[in-house]
Simulated assay, not measured.
Amino acid sequence: MSVKHERTKIEKHHGFEMNKELGQHILRNPLVIKSIIEKSQIKPTDIVLEIGPGTGNLTVKLLEKAKKVIAIEKDPRMIVELQKRLQGNQLAEKLEIIQANILKQDLPYFDICVANIPYNISSPIVFKLLSHKPIFRSAVLMFQREFALRLIARPGDKLFCRLSVNTQLLAKVDHLIKIGRNNFKPPPKVDSSVVSIKPRNPQPEVNFLEWDGLVRLCFNRKNKALSSIFKTKSVVKMVETNYKTYCALNNIEIEEKDFDMKKKIIDVLKSIEFDTKRASKMDIDDFLL
Rank of each mutant, 00 (worst) to 15 (best):
E205L: 12
D267K: 15
P199Q: 06
H175M: 15
I229E: 04
V195G: 06
Q105L: 01
A148H: 13
P188V: 02
K277C: 14
F259I: 14
L91P: 06
R85C: 00
P53I: 09
E205I: 13
I266W: 11
N29Q: 01
S280M: 14
M1V: 08
N101Y: 01
V239W: 00
A171S: 13
S192V: 04
N101H: 05
H132Y: 03
D75T: 02
K237P: 00
Q168E: 08
T232L: 05
D285Y: 14
F147D: 11
M142Q: 09
K61W: 09
P202L: 07
N250L: 01
E21N: 14
V268K: 13
A66S: 09
I254L: 09
A248S: 05
S164M: 15
L226F: 08
M282R: 09
L226P: 09
N120S: 04
C218T: 11
V114I: 05
E81R: 15
T245S: 09
L288I: 12
H175N: 08
Q105S: 06
S131G: 08
F110C: 07
S35D: 13
P108H: 09
P199G: 02
A171E: 09
M238Y: 01
L209A: 15
D267P: 00
S164I: 13
A171P: 07
P134D: 04
D286L: 06
N242K: 11
I272T: 10
K34V: 11
F110Y: 11
T45M: 13
Y109N: 15
A153L: 10
L209Q: 15
L49A: 03
S196I: 03
F230P: 09
I72F: 06
A115R: 07
R7L: 14
I98E: 00
D157M: 12
R162D: 06
E273M: 10
D106C: 01
P188D: 04
K74T: 01
L31N: 12
I284M: 12
G54T: 06
S280Y: 04
P134L: 00
L209H: 15
S2P: 14
N251R: 09
N183E: 12
S123M: 02
L269M: 04
I37L: 05
K185D: 03
L107G: 07
L31M: 12
G156K: 12
K270W: 13
N251L: 05
N223D: 15
E253W: 02
L103R: 05
I70T: 11
K185F: 08
S234F: 03
I125K: 02
D212Y: 07
